[in-house]
Design a protein around this nucleic acid. Structure first.
Length: 781
DNA sequence: GTTCTAGAAC
DNA sequence: GTTCTAGAAC
């Protein structure tokens, strides 16, 4: 199987229409865009793109190729554009400043830049698909094409090209580099003068410093006041703004993350960047604080896109958010220094001038500062701190942030249709329950945990916070002595699955009462269930078998339950009511009538890839939570000391170790190199049951420890360890193969469930389930 | 999917 | 006697 996925953002391209054109050898390429249905692009087909579109390309075969085409403007249009640019550069700058980076770029076309990069740096990738060049349509003259470039290469080049607002084009040479170095803090000046023994100057400097401090306090108070009013108004309208403070060295992808988040999220995000805060030029931190306050005042969420290397630099923003009543989260983009350096050195037109040969010095300085300062801590006032140490983790964090609605109050989320409103509501409910029971809410608990170590990291990703809150509600049920506590406990109590099971039964009973038979006797529940099953799907013979269909059809109805961890237009993620391992979740397809893997076809590839991405994100959250629970503060400090980059976490070490195990388990390195999708971590498996008991296609996400009291029977065991379990990647391969389908022999699959028990690791046969479980505990295989 | 229970296995 | 399984019921 070959699946290559690349993400990129299309920059403004004048007023020209931009299109993706498939020029490959007949293998479809998938085009994914936020808030749009995935599009399968076949040979010769085109997809129109709007300026600022963020999109992903998934090439399903190496020879698949995509070209970016655009209509050349007429001379008259060119003249008109030039005139507009000459007349209103300042207006353009102002407009750019107020927009997201992804949507506001009016610089040179990304496609052209991508082509330049491809010619210079991506020759190998381009050369990997000579067929694409040969098959490129002769459309020159009317359009300009990236001739001979496969989709993956084009997308990779575009993705590597750093996003670049128009402000950068207007930046003067004077603004580059050391503007920040010329700034002096009043307090520092006063201290210096005092140390020099200059009494009069010292007094002047002290007075100046005091005046500056007073002015700063006054400005902070004013900022907080207007921000608080905006946040309160937005909250009343159902969308409480949040602040996301990014931490990372140049080249770590902060700006790209902010732009992508703005493009993908249903929230309205404002990106505050210190490099462009002063009319496109670098400004002071306080200007960023003011801009953040203005964003919150306007009811918008805000990303703080600057290095934010130490707690001191972050404190003003945290204080602002706290004063305004907005949740403040921290995301650390702790990518390896070498990678950041490579990125920074290779980019052109960076808004802060950190590029080319000069980038090494800046990146080095920032790396040293970050290492010295250590990881941000929730104790600084963050609701959550998420540390990413690889591009894959950053991508997962982006996906989570784009999908989650952090900070949405419960009452607002109840009627919201946004993806993770349910999770946010669950978190709020669990927090209320914990508070009513005299406990700290999850967010405060995170602070307490992290306070055990200055450098401890807590993982406060949106969904992780919700999941954490959910578990808290389960393990520490609230007292029902007060109405508030009872309501909260009801919201955070038994999960949706249990409620649904009860609901289905009650519904059957009600139907039986309301529809007496002609003889005056009630219809048996089993008859009603059979009717429901016949209408709802092929699986099962009771009402329970259609429960998942009910969740998939109407997740909002069950939004008070913490078992729902993800909702979007195509899938719903829930925790398995009866987990067969320490970690076990399900991703439900929402398409009606889609019940089992044997119904899948190539048209479902976007859905399955989407599920795969979500599943990996959920796994990462579980790993983070596990790491958070296991890691003592001392261990974390030791790990940080061992990592030169200063940001690589214990979690990454664990991931690396798992990756090594995965490598050992998967010796086909060539295939792995071709397959550019992130791999499923060792110790986890994703897949479908060949013959599911329950209707509605559901992907199992399960850890392979199989350590759970709910795993009781031979059927349970074999359903996850035999070929009865269809691995997602095998399903993807089958759908891309000649058959384009998953072949399932139901009778053979059922027979597998009755075979003898054997350890999934060492293969040892065991006679009974208790013997197997004892073996799993003691064998260490 | 789980729970219940009769009966086989030990 | 207890433990465990398999199938019916839900």
């Amino acid at each position: 199987m070959f699946v290559s996925r690349q993400q990129c953002t299309l920059r403004q391209h004048g007023d020209r229409q931009v299109e993706l054109v498939h020029t490959g050898a007949g293998n479809p390429t998938l085009v994914l865009r936020p808030n749009q249905q995935p599009q399968v692009l076949k040979q010769g087909e085109r997809a129109a793109l709007a300026p600022g579109d963020s999109f992903s390309l998934i090439a399903t075969k190496p020879e698949a190729a995509i070209q970016l085409l655009w209509e050349e403007p007429t001379p008259q249009q060119q003249q008109q554009q030039q005139q507009q640019q000459q007349e209103a550069p300042s207006r353009q700058l102002q407009q750019q400043q107020g927009r997201t980076q992804a949507a506001g770029q009016r610089e040179q076309p990304a496609v052209a830049e991508a082509a330049q990069q491809a010619a210079g740096t991506d020759g190998a990738a381009a050369a990997s698909a000579p067929a694409a060049a040969a098959s490129a349509p002769a459309s020159a003259g009317k359009s300009t094409a990236l001739q001979g470039r496969p989709a993956a290469a084009a997308a990779a080049a575009a993705a590597r090209a750093p996003a670049k607002p128009a402000a950068a084009s207007a930046r003067t040479g004077q603004a580059k580099g050391g503007a920040a170095g010329k700034l002096k803090q009043p307090a520092a000046a006063a201290a210096a003068a005092t140390a020099a023994g200059d009494g009069a100057d010292a007094a002047k400097a002290a007075a100046k410093a005091a005046k500056a401090a007073a002015a700063k306090a006054q400005a902070a108070a004013a900022n907080a006041a207007k921000a608080a009013a905006g946040v309160a108004a937005a909250a009343a309208a159902g969308h409480r703004p949040v602040m996301l403070l990014l931490v990372g060295m140049p080249g770590s992808g902060k700006s790209t993350f902010a732009a992508e988040l703005a493009a993908r999220s249903s929230r309205s995000w404002v990106r505050v960047n210190q490099d462009t805060i002063r009319g496109g030029k670098r400004g002071e931190r306080q200007a960023c604080v003011a801009a953040a306050a203005a964003a919150l005042a306007a009811g918008r969420s805000v990303t703080i896109d600057r290095c934010n290397v130490d707690a001191g630099q972050r404190s003003d923003f945290v204080a602002l958010a706290a004063a305004a009543g907005a949740a403040c989260h921290c995301l650390v983009l702790g990518l390896p220094t070498a990678l950041c350096l490579e990125r920074a050195a290779g980019r052109k037109g960076h808004e802060g001038g950190v590029e080319g040969k000069g980038a090494a010095r800046v990146v080095g300085q920032m790396a040293a500062q970050l290492k010295k300062a250590g990881l941000p801590s929730a104790a600084e006032g963050f609701q959550g701190v998420t540390a990413c140490s690889s591009p894959a983790q950053v991508a997962a964090a982006l996906q989570q942030w784009a999908a989650a609605d952090v900070g949405v109050p419960k009452e607002a989320a109840a009627g919201a249709s946004h993806a993770a409103a349910a999770a946010a509501a669950a978190a709020a409910a669990a927090a209320a329950a914990a508070a009513a029971a005299g406990e700290e809410p999850p967010t405060k608990r995170a602070k307490t945990d992290s306070s055990s170590s200055d450098n401890d990291q807590s993982c406060g990703s949106p969904a992780a916070a919700a999941a954490d809150a959910g578990r808290g509600g389960q393990t520490t049920p609230a007292s029902k002595s007060s109405p508030a506590a009872a309501a909260a406990a009801a919201a955070a109590g038994p999960n949706a699955f249990a409620a649904l099971m009860r609901g289905a039964k009650e519904q059957q009973q009600q139907q039986a009462k309301q529809q007496p038979s002609p003889a005056g006797k009630s219809i048996k529940p089993s008859a009603a269930a059979a009717a429901a099953a016949a209408a709802g799907g092929p699986a099962g013979s009771g009402g329970w078998s259609t429960i998942l269909s009910a969740v998939a059809a109407d997740p909002e109805r069950h939004s008070s339950s913490q078992t729902i961890w993800h909702v979007d237009d195509t899938v719903v993620g829930i925790l398995d009511k009866y987990p067969k391992a320490r970690h076990h979740a399900l991703l439900l397809a929402r398409q009606q009538g889609l019940h089992r893997a044997s119904q899948l076809g190539p048209q479902h590839l976007p859905l399955l890839l989407h599920m795969r991405q979500l599943a990996l994100g959920w796994i990462q959250q579980q790993q983070q939570q596990q790491q958070q629970g296991e890691a003592a503060g001392q261990e974390v400090r030791q790990q940080q000391e061992q990592q030169p980059a200063g940001l690589q976490s214990g979690q990454q070490q664990q991931a690396d170790q798992q990756q090594k195990q995965a490598d050992l388990q998967q010796p086909d390195l060539q295939q792995q190199q071709q397959q550019q999708l992130p791999r499923v971590p060792a110790g986890w498996q994703l897949g479908f049951h060949s013959v599911p008991s329950m209707a509605q296609l559901h992907l199992h996400i399960i850890s392979t420890d199989f350590d759970s009291p709910c795993l009781k029977t031979k059927r349970h065991w074999n359903s996850f360890t035999m070929k009865f379990f269809l691995a997602l990647d095998d399903v993807l391969a089958a759908l891309q193969g000649p058959a384009g389908a998953v072949a399932v022999d139901a009778a053979a699959a059922e027979a597998l469930l009755k075979q003898g028990l054997a350890c999934h690791r060492c293969g040892q046969g065991l006679r009974t389930m208790p013997a197997l479980k004892e073996h799993l505990r003691s064998c260490g295989c």
